[in-house]
């Protein structure tokens, strides 16, 4: 039961990621694309943890943590670029 629910959650998160990707490619300006990238980051993070659950290896969560840190830095760098800060 729990496994099925985890798979359903992964599927819904995947749909969300697809929608955000469409907006990222379509987006009229760079700021919209940055917002979409931020959302995709937040969607991929649970997908990685869900993959760890499905495969059954807890060490994958370390990768999710590194991913969270570095994608956050990427988004901030992009914001600072638009901000004329770098």
């Amino acid at each position: 039961m729990a496994e099925t629910l985890v798979l359903v959650a992964l599927g819904i998160a995947l749909l969300a990621g697809m929608l955000a990707t469409v907006q990222l490619v379509r987006g009229p300006d760079a700021a919209t694309r940055a917002v979409a990238l931020d959302a995709i980051t937040l969607i991929t993070l649970p997908m990685m943890v869900g993959l760890a659950l499905v495969v059954g290896r807890s060490i994958y969560i370390d990768v999710a943590l590194v991913y969270a840190i570095l994608s956050f830095l990427g988004v901030v760098a992009f914001a600072r670029y638009l901000d004329r800060g770098i």
Partner: peptide
Amino acid sequence: ASAVLMLLLV
């Protein structure tokens, strides 16, 4: 290095 990058970004 990304920690250093964060200080440089600010």
